[in-house]
């Protein structure tokens, strides 16, 4: 039993940190323009394809150590997903900045459908995959009776380390740079920030770029961990990451990470100990539960309805 608990904790942490990385894109965009970027999950899906393509291309050109290969992949994937995030905002959301909420929401869904099918048409509908790049892991615990052991794979180590590094960088950027201050002020009051000389359009673009970039990091890590993906993964991953953002309190970056870990852990425990078939149902159920009973999440601030 003990080994299973440890194993699920490790799995949950790895899964959760990926949810967290994607959730940041949702939460930052929501914080700044108050809309759910439905297409964010599809940016992540797109990242998975770019990951596989760049690994295939790089390894066909030259064989190199895995560490170098992965660093190069991240360096290719992140700018490309970030660029997609930027273009997405420019095409679909900027013209609707002052439109009704319903319009912006419908556009976002349209964009999500568009991206899915764009990839389906350009890359084919079937499952894709990459070879296992990192194998093996640490044994954390071995049960003396059944001699089953809890293993933390090296891939999971990479996931945790990369997530930690990205989070710390993001925290530094938001907290201590001029850009971060502009982001925070725009989130608080867009009009006032604009009057004080903050280029809010640029800030919004930057937020999309950061969100999409982190989703790119997430997609490299997921592809590394699971190896297989298709054009539809963005949908489920998107809802789950959004759930994570809601769990943590939408609008809060720390909350998104926390919510991601919470969701990852509870999901992996549920699928490990209860029923793996219904793990998605469980995640969506959790989403609905939180939406109904604690819509502000763990770290969100409550809104007072203005009459």
């Amino acid at each position: 039993m003990m080994w299973e608990i440890i194993q699920q904790t490790v799995n949950g942490l790895a899964l959760g940190s990926i949810y967290g990385l994607i959730a940041i894109g949702y939460t930052m965009v929501y914080g700044i323009i108050g809309m759910i970027n439905f297409a964010h999950g599809d940016i992540y899906m797109l990242g998975a394809y770019v990951t596989a393509i760049s690994i295939a291309v790089i390894s066909s050109i030259a064989s190199m150590p895995v560490v170098l290969l992965l660093s190069l992949t991240v360096l290719i994937v992140v700018p490309i997903t970030a660029l997609h995030g930027y273009v997405l905002e420019k095409i679909a959301y900027k013209p609707l900045r002052h439109a009704q909420k319903l319009s912006a929401l419908i556009t976002a869904i349209g964009m999500s459908l568009f991206l899915q099918n764009y990839i389906q048409i350009s890359q084919g509908a079937r499952n894709q995959g990459i070879p296992t790049l990192i194998s093996g892991g640490f044994t954390l615990w071995t049960d003396k009776i059944s001699s089953l052991s809890a293993v933390m794979s090296y891939t999971q180590v990479v996931i945790l380390v990369v997530t930690l590094v990205s989070m710390l960088t993001l925290a530094y950027v938001i907290k201590s740079t001029s850009l971060g201050r502009q982001c925070r002020s725009t989130q608080q009051d867009q009009m006032m920030s604009a009057m004080l000389g903050v280029n809010t359009d640029r800030v919004i673009s930057v937020v999309f770029i950061i969100g999409a970039g982190l989703a790119g990091v997430g997609s490299v890590l997921v592809t590394l961990n699971y190896g297989s993906f298709d054009f539809f993964i963005g949908f489920i991953a998107g809802i789950k990451a959004f759930t994570a953002a809601v769990l943590g309190g939408i609008g809060s970056v720390t909350g998104a990470m926390l919510g991601g870990l919470l969701l990852g852990m509870s999901e992996s425990f549920f699928s490990g100990l209860v029923n793996a078939d219904y793990k998605d149902v469980f995640a969506f159920g959790l989403l609905i539960f939180f939406m109904v009973f604690k819509p502000t999440g763990l770290l969100g601030t409550p809104e007072v309805t203005k009459v």
Partner: peptide, 17 residues
């Protein structure tokens, strides 16, 4: 027919804008 769904996406975005 095979870009059907793509078309729906485009319709939604274009119409809203």
């Amino acid at each position: 027919a095979n870009v059907r769904v793509l078309m729906f996406g485009v319709v939604m975005v274009v119409m809203m804008i």
